[in-house]
Amino acid sequence: MCDTCGCSADGGAVLRKPGESDYLMHVSDGNHGHTHHHAGEVHHSSANVQEEHHDHAHDHHHHESTTRKIVLEQDVLQQNNLLAERNRGYFEARHIFALNFLSSPGSGKTSLLEKIIPLLQQRFPVAVIEGDQQTTNDADRIHALGVPVIQINTGSGCHLDALMVNRAVKELEVQDHSLLCIENVGNLVCPALFDLGEALKVVIISVTEGDDKPLKYPTMFHEADLCILNKIDLLPYVEFDVAKCRENAMRVNHHLEWFEVSAKSGEGLSVLQEWIEKRLSHH
């Protein structure tokens, strides 16, 4: 809700907590300012205008309406990137190891978390941020494991951003030395562009998708640090060339760590678990 005019911020993200039905918080309330603007709000008094001009020491000519070009060279995602760096600093100071899980809807992000968190939890505290456009289903599933979890509902937004994570972390009790798992909105395009402040990006694909997925979504695979191929229990039933998929992924990003797992049968999970534990203890 906008304080200036009372208009509702359409599609604004909200936070929800499983088991607390009356908890709801708007992400963009507070210091985010306006994402929409109203004609008429912008007319400063002429004294103000003069002052600002002299502050900026730009060349300007004193005649009627003038046109002026201002060079910005500003990164479009600058605001997000700055906030992501603040998140990153906060995580580092508290030795929180944050992983950003990315995939198309249904590749098995939540299933994988459900399976691997009970294993990891024996050695490290774990907390989860769940991203989804509408539902709290995923947070409910994680809540059942008994770890702290908060749901971000992005509404019409198709990715998490650094501000949402910043707010969610404040509302979530994350202990020092935790593993923080962030499940992004199911989408392989936009989440690649938005840094959340995570230590690593984890992209998940399943064998029911095409083995050319890394080539179709190169930005995502280029940005990722780990790639997890899930649902390998289904390999006998689908046409999926694991070696080819891996090769495609490595072509887009030769630094990619590669894992093959089944969140259903548990196959491959211990290798992934050991890798995460090793990284966590060196963090």
Partner: peptide
């Protein structure tokens, strides 16, 4: 690259020697 390179603005008419 993904940058806002520059913007072109129109200013209010201004008076000399305010």
């Amino acid at each position: 690259e993904f940058l806002i390179q520059s913007i072109t603005i129109e200013e209010e008419g201004e008076q000399e020697n305010v």
